[in-house]
Amino acid sequence: TTVKLGDIKVTFDNPEKAKKYAQKLAKIYQLTVHVHGDTIHVK
């Protein structure tokens, strides 16, 4: 599962960890989390 934020891409083996990371980023940057299959976009 890949978390994308602009040019930053972080890949996790564990989808749950990816989701938590995405939510953490979203909170920090006051953005929202969008899940598209294996990719989680923070924008």
Results as ranks from 00 to 15, higher is better:
H34V: 15
G37Y: 06
N14V: 05
I40A: 01
K43M: 14
L5D: 02
L25G: 00
T32P: 02
K43P: 03
T39M: 11
Q23T: 08
I28A: 07
K17L: 13
T32E: 11
A22N: 01
Q30V: 05
K20T: 06
A18C: 11
H34K: 09
D7C: 15
Y29L: 12
V10Q: 03
E16R: 07
T11H: 13
H41P: 00
V42D: 00
V42F: 10
A22G: 01
K27C: 15
K24N: 08
K43D: 08
K19Q: 10
T39E: 09
P15N: 07
H34S: 12
D13H: 09
D13G: 08
K27W: 09
H36K: 11
N14R: 05
V35F: 11
K17D: 14
T39V: 13
P15K: 09
A26S: 05
G6H: 09
G37F: 06
D13V: 09
K24W: 15
I8R: 10
K19T: 07
V3P: 03
H41G: 01
T2D: 04
H36S: 13
K24G: 06
K19A: 09
V33S: 01
K19G: 04
L5E: 02
H41Y: 14
A22R: 01
K17W: 10
Y21H: 04
G37Q: 05
P15Q: 08
V33E: 01
F12M: 02
L31E: 03
N14G: 04
L5S: 02
V42R: 00
K27V: 07
L5H: 07
T32W: 06
E16F: 07
H34G: 04
Q30D: 14
L25W: 05
A26G: 04
L25V: 05
K4I: 15
K20M: 11
D7P: 12
T11L: 13
K24V: 11
F12C: 11
I28G: 01
K24Y: 15
I28T: 06
T39N: 04
T1F: 13
I28C: 15
V42M: 08
N14Q: 05
K19N: 08
G37H: 03
A18T: 01
N14K: 04
G6D: 03
K9L: 13
